[in-house]
Design a binder for these strands. Sequence first.
RNA 1: UCCUGAGUAGCUCAGUGGUAGAGCGGUCGGCUGUUAACCGAUUGGUCGUAGGUUCGAGUCCUACCUCAGGAGCCA
Length: 462
Amino acid sequence: MTGSTSVKDALRSTAAVDSIYVQGWVRTRRDSKTFSFLELNDGSSLRNLQVIANDWLANYADVQRLATGASIAVRGKLIPSQGKGQSWEVIADDLTIIGPSDDTYPLQKKGHTPEFLREIAHLRPRSNLFGSVFRVRSRLAFAIHQFFQERDFVYVHTPIITASDCEGAGELFRITTIDATNPPRGGDGNIDYAKDFFARSTFLTVSGQLEAEAFACALKNVYTFGPTFRAENSNTSRHANEFWMIEPEMAFCDLTCNMDTAEELVKYLIRDIRENCPDEIELFGKFVDKELTARLEFVLDRPFQRISYTEAVELLLESGEKFEFPVEQGTNLQSEHERWLTEKHFKCPVTVFGYPKEIKPFYMRLNDDGKTVTAMDVLVPGIGEIVGGSQREERLDVLEANMRRHNLDPVEYKWYLDLRRYGTVPHSGFGLGFERMLMFVTGVSNIRDVIPFARTPGSAEF
RNA sequence: UCCUGAGUAGCUCAGUGGUAGAGCGGUCGGCUGUUAACCGAUUGGUCGUAGGUUCGAGUCCUACCUCAGGAGCCA
């Protein structure tokens, strides 16, 4: 790579260059009488660099056989382009074919459906769409760190192997080294996990929240950003079994502060991507979602609607809309209800807070009414829930009572309760689904298309 | 897991019980400072799998598989 120029930099050049060295993959070739046009892409940007290969090149016969997908290196002159569509092009003095391709290469110049490209997940980053998605994914991850680091949040690496199997965050993947064909059994005939590697049952994490709380109660503002695993048999465009999640946790922060942070974060990320990935956003707006640009604009322009669960239910009841599932106080909002709120009624992101305690986990802070908890969800048009969070219950006695109500044994959570026993503080946090955020910002409608190699039920190829 | 729909050429699809089709791609030729070029020719099939109905099934029936959309679970 030493001495080589990226396609992105070559196209940004302000002057002609006598000797330039570029490397990349051939997107298409067009032959003329005495020379060939090659479209060279190296993934550095959406754009291709046009290379002129003249028939006096020693290996011109081979150049004329170059197929889409082949890798080449070109040494030549960067000059102003005579043609339309690009300002610079390279006249090759020397062209090395590094890795040829052939007519079995599955990617064509013409557009492919995302469903087809999903079947060739190892090649799809070479397409315009997926190259763009994954450049944006990288930038989005960077912007997340930037947001929190600018605000002095401490990045905490919570464990991926965990023993907390409760919390109601869904099914867990078990981690074990026990021989499945001959497991050790206890007196009751069940598998004895005390003989397992960690001398207890262990699982892949479904959330780093509890551990993040411990660090927030020491470092004040922290965040996690890592993979999360849920063994749910979910077959939807919004669920994957391995996904990434951002979980800030803030001490001395109540529900309002929590909602403010979530909204600020979502807007910051949209703004950052819009500024730093304009070519990609333009492509998504053209080929993926025609209303993308307008929607992102709209979201940045105004505050998210905030509405209590009780008010939301009342709105739904008064809407006159015919829902497939009934709306009633005390039950969870259905997808269609959430969609009505964000897509039809408010037409912008909506933060719903103050859910009934019965439908929410034990760690959420009980409100003074004794009926609701300080939960909050940010719902966005097209995707639904993108953020879920709450102010945490900081009162030891109330927390223990909550646990018993959820049939959890406080003894199992001694370390978590210690946080309330010693110097407890009001604190809050939320989880932002990284892929869902990426879907929102790109307009890509299937979560499988924003993860390099998606893991979904029955599918873990590659 | 449930509901709905789809599976035919490399890709996108048409074919509605009677000879397997088109466009794109690929290949060959022509033309051209070209731009998802253009013109001509050509290549291309286990009709998802297994059964069944029928003189005859891509087409009708049954089961299964895969994919998509929706639901639940959630981020």
